[in-house]
Amino acid sequence: MAQLKVGARLRSAVCATEVIVVAAPAGDVDISCGGVPMLGAGEEAPNGATLDSSGEPTLLGKRYTNAAGDLELLCTKAGDGSLSLGGERLVTKDAKPLPSSD
């Protein structure tokens, strides 16, 4: 459990998944991947953690959000685990295409 900072990088404790926080709700939040809390910079995976592979694997470059819409994670490395926030499974967010400007 920790306060999430926009721009922070989290990595899965049990698969190759890495994400960047694009938007975060205020207060402490519990982000998991593959059923195990994700790790921040310098944090080590707990002993004996195993991947819960029941959900969809993460996809490179996809944005993940919660139902409330106040959390957004961007997947920078794909992996086998699926993302969740305090037990709520995160879903991919549909891209609203912007015209390319440069």
């Binding site: 721009g7 490179l60 961007l74």
Partner: peptide, 16 residues
């Protein structure tokens, strides 16, 4: 880096 990467994340969809 946070400015430029935020700009890209905010304005471009990956692999679009």
């Amino acid at each position: 880096h946070r400015h430029l990467v935020s700009y890209i994340f905010g304005s471009v969809e990956f692999g679009s």
